[in-house]
Design a protein around this nucleic acid. Structure first.
Lengths: 197, 197
DNA sequence: TTTCCATCCTAGGGGCTCTAGGATATAACT
DNA sequence: AGTTATATCCTAGAGCCCCTAGGATGGAAA
């Protein structure tokens, strides 16, 4: 009997590929085992359970997405950086829909696993440094980061769910949305504390 | 033997309640049946299968959310309407997380069922009419609608997934985000066609 | 060569989905 | 009121998935 040579990494990658093909929710132990030419019980040597596998896929995806964004924004600033950042984000989501979905599911991931993954923290740093050129100060900076993430994620999620009718291509809207976000960052409104109207 | 008095509506509502409690993905025929005091096979008289049930929950949620938004924005315009619209959206998502998730899953819903549901179409109309006060013309109007939906959905999705660290409350960011969107709509950038830099 | 351990297996319990076919409550009709 | 008809709900059972327990075996170290 030839050993399949399983490792946590290979199982996770197989799960990630499956997620991209059939959807993150359809990632199943049985199917992953089938693809690896192995009985499903064998996977439990490398992965605690399905939830654990899903968490690992999520972390893998977060890291991959972060790397993409880091590469895309390297050496850029201002609008160039914003556009590169946003396009890297959207491209990753479109190329790896299952992995991308994984990054957004509120699953309980093993904390020590998260600690080892560089993705999430680095992603935050990247976003802040990208916004540096716009000269925002806290707490506006945090708010701006959150608005950007919200809009990026919301757009790709709606696009993936078929939420945009076909009259106008999502691509056209995307380009204009980035214009809008750029001008928004350049003219971030002052706080309206005590300004009732 | 006393009849349980099942109908498609009662099954759908039970499913929606279950979704809010345990998450949309965890909505199961067996559990819905259990709650209704019925064997799971009995549900198939009223609902084709799980996918069908999920689709009905999604349509129910879409309608409910639309009604909320319609009530909230009635008689308002400009910033007032924008804020009311956004808050109604977010409040619905937070009160009914399972139902809200349902509205975002790209499931294949029975087309004739969709045709009977007034929610989706009305939601689009509401958004357009809310933006009327900002004086945008097509295609900017469509783009603005999409940006708003993206930001609203992205924000509540990230908030629900615990995507915002605890340094600053999501509520504070939300208020500022609405400010930002308002000013963005008032100063929607002109198209940069043929404007390379 | 022998030992040993990680890797992979078989066996099996429990849950969920869905179909087929049978019983019965309720409403309609005579 | 008695009968009929239909929708409602049931039992039985097959198939798939998750996961555990415990047994075999490949491959590397002694």
């Amino acid at each position: 009997m030839v050993r399949a040579g399983l490792t946590v990494e290979r199982v996770t990658i197989a799960g990630a590929e499956l997620a991209d093909e059939v959807g993150f929710e359809q990632v199943t132990m049985s199917e992953v085992a089938r693809r690896l030419g192995v009985k499903d019980a064998s996977l439990y040597t490398h992965v605690r359970n399905v939830e654990d596998l899903r968490g690992r896929i999520a972390l893998l995806a977060a890291d991959e997405k972060t790397v993409r964004i880091a590469e895309a924004t390297a050496g850029r600033a201002g609008r160039d950086a914003l556009v590169a950042f946003a396009n890297a984000w959207r491209d990753y989501a479109r190329e790896h829909p299952g992995r991308y979905t994984a990054t957004q599911t509120p699953i309980q991931i093993d904390p020590e696993l998260v600690a080892k993954a560089p993705g999430p923290r680095r992603a935050v740093e990247l976003t802040y440094s990208m916004l540096r050129a716009y000269g925002l100060a806290e707490p506006d900076l945090t708010d701006a980061v959150r608005v950007l993430r919200s809009t990026f994620h919301g757009f790709v999620a709606l696009e993936a769910a078929g939420g945009f009718a076909h009259e106008r291509s999502p691509q056209q809207t995307w380009v204009r949305a980035l214009d809008a976000l750029h001008t928004l960052l350049e003219h971030w409104p002052p706080s309206r504390e005590g300004d009732p109207k």
